[in-house]
């Protein structure tokens, strides 16, 4: 048994094995921070790399993330005890008037895999709900998705309100009709055209 086995169980999508593997490491008194970092998070980092390179398919990536989460659940009480905080909290959602969620879900899953706590507000989320959730969860990052030209302006509205409220959360935007120019124009803190890029952005904007 080793942290390497935990790492491998995620890469090999072994949903049924990971809980026991993590428990065995805990029982062996391995440092919980090491299990988290080297076992769980590094594995998802590798998953992210393989996905970016097109070697891993989405259903596989999702199963890996699910496997990681099962491991994380076993570890969670000890993390709280050891006062190890998650990397940061991200609010994700598709903006008001927009019901497209495939891309948003992928972004959320990948962020979770990268060690962020993700609060998913779902679709058709109005700016106030983003604001409230960011406040309540003391989120460091808000990731908004829009797939329609008619709902893109909601993102601008959101950015405005966050700046006004001065919550300190950074805002990133994405979705097929959004591009870098638009993100700059509405003063968002970042844009990416895909989910691995969203993770990169999050890591840069919310340093560990």
């Amino acid at each position: 048994m080793s942290i390497e086995d935990i790492f491998q169980s995620i890469l090999q999508l072994k949903r049924g094995e990971i809980a026991d593997l993590v428990q065995a490491e805990i029982d062996a008194k391995t440092d919980v921070g090491a299990i988290l970092e080297q076992g769980l998070i590094n594995a998802m980092g590798e998953v992210g790399n393989q996905f970016s390179e097109g070697r891993l398919f989405v259903p596989e990536m999702l199963r890996a993330a699910e496997t990681m989460k099962i491991g994380l659940e076993v570890l969670r009480p000890l993390l709280v005890e050891a006062d190890i905080k998650p990397r940061g909290t991200v609010i994700v959602g598709t903006v008001k008037g927009d019901l497209h969620d495939i891309g948003k879900n992928l972004v959320g899953m990948m962020l979770e895999g990268a060690g962020f706590t993700v609060v998913d507000l779902g679709v058709d989320v109005d700016p106030k709900a983003f604001l409230d959730a960011a406040g309540e969860n003391r989120a460091q990052l808000v990731a908004m998705s829009a797939l329609l030209t008619t709902t893109m302006p909601v993102m601008a509205d959101c950015v405005g309100r966050f700046k006004e409220a001065n919550l300190g959360a950074r805002l990133i935007v994405g979705g097929a009709p959004v591009n870098q120019d638009f993100a700059i124009k509405i003063s968002a803190d970042g844009y990416s055209s895909d989910a691995p890029g969203a993770v990169e952005l999050a890591k840069n904007l919310v340093p560990a």
Binding site: F51, G54, V58, I102, G103, L106
Partner: peptide, 9 residues
């Protein structure tokens, strides 16, 4: 149909 590499439509 899904592009399994990206989730794209």
């Amino acid at each position: 149909s899904t592009d399994f590499a990206s989730g794209g439509f």
